[in-house]
Every structure is written in C-alpha cells, then in structure tokens.
C-alpha cells in the first residue's frame, strides 16, 4: 500500500515510471495549477497521494483546469496509488465522471500499482482509453448512462472487477 506516503514520494515513483517507459512530460510547476502534462497524446494529469485528495483535484478541475483542457483539447487524468479501502473509490470516481460530463471533457482515473509496476486505467465504458503507457496498463471500463452516472448494480460489479484485478 502506498496511499498516504506523501506526494513527493508518489511524485518520485511516478516520474521513475515515466522515465522507464520513455514518456515525455512537462513536470509540476511548469504550467500553473497543473501537476503534469505528459505525451504521446497530450494529457493533463493531477497526481494525488490519497483517495480523499481526489476531491480537491475535482474542485480544481471544475474551477481551473477544465478550461485549459478544453482549450487544448486534451484528456484529464487523476492518478493516485492503490487506496486502502477500494470501495471508497466509488464516490470520487462518480464525482469525477459527473464533472467530466458537465464540462464535456474526456478523462480517466489511474490507480498506480507500484508493486506490480502497472497502471489501472478506469474510465466510462463508452470512452476509448488513452494510448499512453498502454503496455503497462490494465483498462477497467465502468458502465454508465449518457450522463456518466453509475448505477448501484454496476458499482458493485466494478468493485468486484477491480478487486479481482488487484489480487
């Protein structure tokens, strides 16, 4: 478990991952309010070290980053280590999807599995995953309606799938 070890450490591990897979990136601080911009395709990435902090990232996307992402037509990603209580991912994930739907943006939530050196990309079913780091990623698509809302049944199914993947 890496949740809560502190953003500088998560940042270091994440940067190592980018370097290992030859991904170009603009580091934190270079663009105001944005943690990373990474390529092949352009992605704005908010790196958090706990699940709870995802809410801050969402508020930031609503108020500041959403406009930038729309202007340069790029994906928004929130990345964080595997949380201690997987079930609790449902609310921040749903809120993230809702905000994306309201702002008409495309986004993904990444769980950084440092132990297995891989990324779990979580996104709405109708969206194609980003191609970046595809060789080291697992994609989990969540069933949603047109407004990106997840039903209770689909939420349970998603948690089952996620837990199976993490075993």
């Amino acid at each position: 478990m890496y949740e809560g070890i502190g953003e500088p450490y998560i940042d270091k591990l994440f940067r190592e991952l980018l370097i290992k897979y030859n991904v170009n990136y603009i580091p934190p601080g270079a663009v105001r309010h944005v943690d990373y911009i990474i390529s092949e395709e352009m992605i704005i990435l908010e790196l958090e070290d706990t699940l709870q902090e995802v809410y801050n990232a969402i508020a930031q996307i609503k108020d500041l980053i959403g406009g930038v992402s729309k202007a340069i037509n790029c994906r928004i990603v929130i990345a964080l280590p595997i949380p201690r209580f997987i079930e609790l991912i449902l609310s921040p994930l749903q809120r993230f999807f809702i905000v994306l739907s309201h702002l008409n943006l495309i986004g993904e939530l990444w769980l950084l599995d440092f132990e297995k050196d891989r990324i779990i990309k979580i996104l709405p079913e109708k969206i194609n995953p980003s191609s970046i780091l595809r060789n080291t990623s697992v994609v989990i698509k969540v069933k949603t309606n047109d407004k990106y809302e997840i039903s209770e049944e689909d939420a349970r199914e998603f948690i089952r799938e996620l837990k199976n993947n993490l075993r």
Partner: peptide, 17 residues
C-alpha cells in the same frame, strides 16, 4: 464490516451525483 463499507460507499457515490 466490508459489506457496510460498500453500502456507505454506494450512498456516497449517489450523493456525488
């Protein structure tokens, strides 16, 4: 319990809509 955690998490998910 895990079951209660899932229930509360789903409720929180409904709230976030």
């Amino acid at each position: 319990s895990n079951n209660e955690l899932l229930k509360l998490s789903i409720e929180l998910m409904e709230l976030s809509k």
